[in-house]
Amino acid sequence: MHIFVFLLRQTIFFSMPLLISAIGAMFSELSGIVNIALEGIMILGAFSGILFINQLQDKIHGQTLLLIAILISALVGIFFSLIHGYASIKFKANQIISGTAINLFAPAFSVYISRMIFSIKQISFKNQFIIKKIFLLNKIPFLGEIFFTQTYITVFISFFILFLSWLVVYKTRFGLRLRACGENPNAADIVGIEVSKMQYIATAISGALAGVSGLTFIIPTSTQFDGNVAGYGFLALAVLIFGQWRPDKILFASFLFGFLKAISTSYSEIMFLKKISISSYFYKSLPYIIILIVLIWTSKNTKPPNALGKIYDSNEN
């Protein structure tokens, strides 16, 4: 029982970053922009947040520090996603290429800066953000143990983001317009929606969420950052496709992969898996193998936004 709770807690820690960055990618893809730069933006978000925590952890404490760091990660994420957006919306450049440029830039930049400051590539931080238990809520059987003991504020922020984005996409005028831009930018333009403005906003949202997601990935699972987020940005794109560009399915998909990732890191503590003694490399590659299989299974019937990745030029028509 104890190990089961532990595994589920780990699952939440691993699936929240996937959830937020996939939701972010959903916004930009619904508007028609492929944000393959997620991985890079996650790295830069995590880097700036962790650097901030590292520098100020003796002056500011606890949740305040974390919340400011989250804000910084979001701002850095917005900045870099707008760099990507500028190339792909304003200059109508190939979206894959400008995203790849950011993906190449991010790990190099964060390792470069930390080596220039600390002369090693790791930035370490004291983990003072864990919430031991939340009063009363931790008494709820089972759920209390998983969600409300030994948890982080980022978990609740993630669920809040999920709820909010569902509301925005399906219940507001903004969401409707956003989806119109990705489905048929021509029609959206004709009825008076500013397509490029919507795309900028969507890209900025995806950047903010990816930046936060990078920090959310590092804080509960490590005490140092060394310029990578283990391919989570790319995994988030896979989760997005598997989740069919819909918040509810994205939640399910990210839980699935979070669970697999949790197994791959803590399989040695699960008795019956330890007894089988399969190589650790198998468990490490398991999430990626399963994603590949799931993609084969679902891709045939996926229906991405119609104008995804296509460059809309209002002057052309």
């Binding site: 391919g231 790319f234 794109l237 896979a238 496709i241 990626y288 590949l292 993609l295 084969i296 891709s299």
Partner: peptide, 12 residues
């Protein structure tokens, strides 16, 4: 299977 080649190659 119409799998996006970018995602599948990253997994591979």
């Amino acid at each position: 299977y119409n799998v996006n080649e970018v995602i599948s190659s990253i997994m591979i």
